[in-house]
Amino acid sequence: MIKTVENDVMKLNLEDDLIAKNVKTLNMKLMDMMDEFDDVSEVVLDMATVKNIDSVGVTFVINLYKKVSDTGGNFRVVHSSEDIRQLFKLMKLEDFFDL
């Protein structure tokens, strides 16, 4: 996961699938950057490289959304595939953040 910050916006680019075998590492990276959420107004998760996802991966996105929301920031997901967008809609995640 590559992090860039520009104009008060933190962009997180995933580099691999959002699946159980990768989420442990992603959670460790997330722990390291949590304090920085206070310094930005928005966190954008770029899922352009994500082809495969499972419910552990979905839980990662939900936890990220919660952590950003807790600091008063906005959270959105960009560049997800149509299949993943449909899955998120099915899970009613669009009620919480933009897809």
Binding site: I19, I53, S55
Partner: peptide, 13 residues
Amino acid sequence: EFRINFMLREILN
């Protein structure tokens, strides 16, 4: 394919 992929991961995980 996508839903089979998701389902398999779910039941195997």
